[in-house]
């Protein structure tokens, strides 16, 4: 029971980073759209958004990769110890 609540909390915290990253992506795309609408140097905005958005997604991806990798192993250990 206790392990389960911890796990849920961990999943929530991981989804928090995804919310953060998606929010940043939405923010930058919003700024990009504004700059296109106002014809205010959209080139600069496009350049920045192309670099920034993938960087954030890769960072969140690495964190998720580690999280999943560690937990898979933990489940295996628990299973084998029960058997």
């Amino acid at each position: 029971m206790h392990a389960k609540t911890t796990y849920i909390a961990q999943v929530l915290s991981i989804s928090l980073i995804w919310i953060f990253v998606i929010a940043i992506a939405i923010w930058i795309i919003n700024l990009l759209l504004i700059s296109i609408e106002l014809k205010d140097v959209p080139g600069a905005s496009i350049g920045i958004s192309i670099i920034v958005i993938p960087v954030f997604f890769v960072l969140a991806g690495i964190l998720t990769y580690v999280f999943i990798g560690l937990h898979k192993e933990e489940k295996k250990i628990i299973k084998s110890s029960q058997e």
Partner: peptide, 20 residues
């Protein structure tokens, strides 16, 4: 416990962590 993400120190976990 919350922060350790179920780390047990197995070979696979070490590999995942090192790669990241």
């Amino acid at each position: 416990n919350f922060l350790s993400w179920g780390w047990q120190g197995t070979a696979h976990q070490v590999k995942v962590l090192n790669r990241a």
